[in-house]
Nucleic acid binder design. Structure first.
Length: 211
DNA sequence: GGTAAGATCCGCT
DNA sequence: GCGGATCTTACCT
């Protein structure tokens, strides 16, 4: 009686533009298996980032060493380091000549609460464990080591069908923390879910000391 | 070689 | 609600 692993989403799932993939990711299950523990979460908030046409996308200025994975095959993880201390996890999607991705902004941990809580020592409630993109990456144990990992059938990640919410519960709005293309409603979330991160408009960084 | 801004989070007021 | 932490990336000279 071997337990059959649940069927993963088809690879063609990611062979669509980010704006089409993003809302379709809501309610899906992402499982991450690492030596430090296995964590599975239900995605509740995502953001789409397109390619050269999207000034907010890391792919906007062309291929670099950092964003090379975005220009590779869809269905892989793009992990970047930001603000000097945080990692964020994206899923690469769209045709190879239209590099894009979906930022995973929030989710509800449904398995592996213990390892997630160990990594998120400051988190008080279960709903806070993956509430926000950097928190989500930390709860899963993701860092740059996972950059480029296969999300469909890789040893680390596995994306499962899960239970998509009814269309009426899917909401959209401006992307968070983005100064460019702020009027593009490419952030999608499950309405009323407590794990969705609070919206915060982009705030300009204060001038360095010394006036 | 220097510098400014960044797909953020947390603690304090 | 506001500002500090902390460092990588990319653009400018």
């Amino acid at each position: 009686m071997t337990e059959e692993p649940a069927a993963a989403l088809d690879r063609a799932f990611f062979d669509r533009p980010p704006v089409a993939v993003a809302p379709d990711l809501l309610g899906r299950l992402l499982r991450c298996t690492l030596p430090s523990g296995t964590v599975e979460l239900r995605l509740t908030e995502v953001e789409a980032y397109a390619g050269p046409d999207d000034p907010a996308s890391h792919a906007y200025r062309g291929r670099t060493a950092r964003n090379a994975v975005m220009f590779g095959p869809p269905g892989h993880a793009y992990v970047y380091f930001t603000y000097g201390m945080h990692f964020c996890l994206n899923l690469v999607c769209g045709p190879a000549d239209h590099p894009g991705g979906v930022l995973l902004r929030a989710g509800r941990v449904i398995e592996g609460v213990d390892p997630a809580r160990r990594r998120r020592s400051t988190s008080r409630r279960d709903q806070d464990l993956a509430q926000g993109p950097a928190r989500l990456a930390l709860a899963l144990g993701v860092d740059r080591t996972q950059d480029g990992e296969d999300v469909v059938a890789g040893p680390v990640f596995r994306l499962l069908p899960g239970s998509p919410p009814p269309p009426a519960q899917v909401r959209s709005g401006p992307r968070t923390g983005v100064s460019a293309a702020a009027d593009t409603p490419w952030r999608f979330w499950i309405d009323g879910d407590p794990t969705v991160s609070p919206y915060r408009a982009h705030t300009a960084r204060r001038r360095p000391a010394g006036r």
